[in-house]
Computed example of a mutant assay.
Amino acid sequence: MAMSGPSGGASARRGRGRHRAPMSEINVTPLVDVMLVLLIIFMITAPLLASAVPVDLPESRAKPVETEEQEPVQLSINADDTLYIGEEVVPEADLPARLEAIAREAKEGGKPPQIMLRADKGLDYGRVMRVMGELNHAGLSRIALVTTGSETAAAIAEPAVTAGSDSGQ
């Protein structure tokens, strides 16, 4: 009885054959931390990536308009001639009443809001002008036409200026 088996005594625990059991628990704290950081990043960047109304904007060399502390009103016209105020579809017949309501709210607040007009580049010019006429009729005259910046438009306009200055010599 001098010898003890693998299950008995202190000598079995102190010997060379001591092995740790594999870790069967997963530490989820780092996983939760990483997921929360990713969630915050996506929450911040998602609204900046895309506008809710898909519009193929024309290109322009114009400089960006600086907006004020008041949130501008987004008015969009899709390629299929659908009108949106913000992300809400507005029927053509309801547009004058909705614009007058926006103008009325602005008069109560003091300063009229900036209107950001986003129109698809394939639309008829007359269609865009009719919407601008409705804006003007409602008393909303602070209108900005939204475009995309273009390096190709700048490259096309640059030779035209150079050619005009060469012809004067």
Rank of each mutant, 00 (worst) to 15 (best):
residue 25 E to V: 09
residue 148 T to M: 13
residue 141 S to T: 13
residue 86 G to D: 02
residue 69 E to P: 02
residue 44 I to Y: 12
residue 129 M to S: 12
residue 163 A to V: 03
residue 124 D to C: 06
residue 142 R to I: 06
residue 46 A to R: 09
residue 110 G to Y: 06
residue 68 E to K: 12
residue 82 T to L: 11
residue 11 S to A: 12
residue 5 G to I: 00
residue 169 Q to M: 12
residue 76 S to A: 08
residue 44 I to S: 11
residue 166 D to P: 01
residue 36 L to S: 13
residue 152 T to R: 15
residue 42 F to K: 04
residue 83 L to C: 06
residue 17 G to K: 12
residue 113 P to A: 07
residue 168 G to S: 07
residue 49 L to N: 03
residue 166 D to L: 13
residue 116 M to A: 13
residue 169 Q to I: 07
residue 113 P to Q: 08
residue 14 R to W: 02
residue 3 M to W: 00
residue 163 A to R: 06
residue 31 L to H: 15
residue 151 E to H: 04
residue 17 G to V: 02
residue 154 A to T: 11
residue 15 G to A: 07
residue 77 I to Y: 03
residue 17 G to I: 01
residue 47 P to L: 07
residue 163 A to I: 03
residue 99 L to I: 01
residue 8 G to D: 13
residue 158 E to R: 15
residue 165 S to T: 15
residue 128 V to Y: 05
residue 95 L to S: 03
residue 10 A to K: 12
residue 120 D to Q: 12
residue 111 K to H: 09
residue 132 M to H: 00
residue 133 G to I: 02
residue 51 S to F: 12
residue 30 P to A: 04
residue 118 R to S: 09
residue 38 L to G: 10
residue 139 G to Y: 08
residue 163 A to Q: 05
residue 77 I to N: 01
residue 80 D to R: 12
residue 90 V to D: 00
residue 73 V to R: 03
residue 45 T to F: 08
residue 123 L to S: 11
residue 147 T to E: 01
residue 19 H to L: 13
residue 44 I to D: 08
residue 71 E to M: 09
residue 23 M to K: 14
residue 116 M to R: 13
residue 47 P to T: 07
residue 37 V to A: 15
residue 28 V to M: 14
residue 112 P to K: 01
residue 74 Q to P: 00
residue 23 M to S: 14
residue 24 S to A: 09
residue 104 R to A: 14
residue 142 R to P: 00
residue 138 A to C: 03
residue 59 E to G: 14
residue 39 L to V: 11
residue 152 T to L: 13
